[in-house]
Amino acid sequence: MSLSLVGLALASEGESEGFHAPSPEEFYWPIFGSGDWTFTRPMLMMALSVLILGVLLVTLTKKAAIVPGKGQWMVEQAYDFVRNGIARDIIGSKDFLKYTPLLFSLFTLILLNNLFGIIPPIQYPTMSRIGFPIALTLIVYAVYHIAGMRRKGVGHYLSGMIPKGLPKPIYALIIPLEYATYFIIRPLTLALRLFGNMFAGHMLLLLFIMGGEYMLLHGGPGLKVVSVGSFLMALIFTAFEALIQFLQAYIFTLLAATYISDAISEEH
């Protein structure tokens, strides 16, 4: 909210002096090709993140030592966090091991790609391109629905989504709402939450940095002073972004685990 107000204010002020507030087009970074099949910079970053994670994780855990070295210990901290803190606690002892690789992959991939948003010289969160959150959401969506249907059978799986023991007339309203939630809104919010946070965060940083730069180069003495504040804000929000980036990776993984647990749990 504050973002769009500031953005509008700066835009309207800057219009006469030629300042352009950052627009969504700033997020489109083609490298080669055109149209829907353009190879873009976020794709390169995604490939890079898979390469980094793959090489790092495999080399650091290759020894599988009982007494871990520093590298293995660090991987184990992250793995512990996902395995015991998310998968085991939410899915439960019985089934969590099967889904741990999925959740660990999700968490590490999202976290690294989010952190790209503040790591120089990349400074661009991959997940601010909605194609990537949608890709991950589709995978989670397929996994939990298929797991639920295989565990309970299609009929039981669908009827299990509706809470039992409510007054009869209410079901006319509840049933469409539950199905809309399970099949449409949940994946939508899952993807949009991640995308929105990364998009807005990056936008905010762009705004402060570009605004500061413009004021410093083109503004009068008063604006030059203000530009210092703008850069300072960029710095503060960078630290804030780091927190958001971690939190969003955590929430995405947590919700994926919750949906899986919900789909395969017996009671409801």
Binding site: M43, M46, S49, L106, R129, G131, F132, A135
Partner: peptide, 16 residues
């Protein structure tokens, strides 16, 4: 921005 570039979506699935 809330409509995906199809290439990125497919690429994301493959990368994951």
């Amino acid at each position: 921005p809330i409509l995906p570039l199809w290439g990125e979506l497919i690429f994301g699935i493959i990368a994951f």
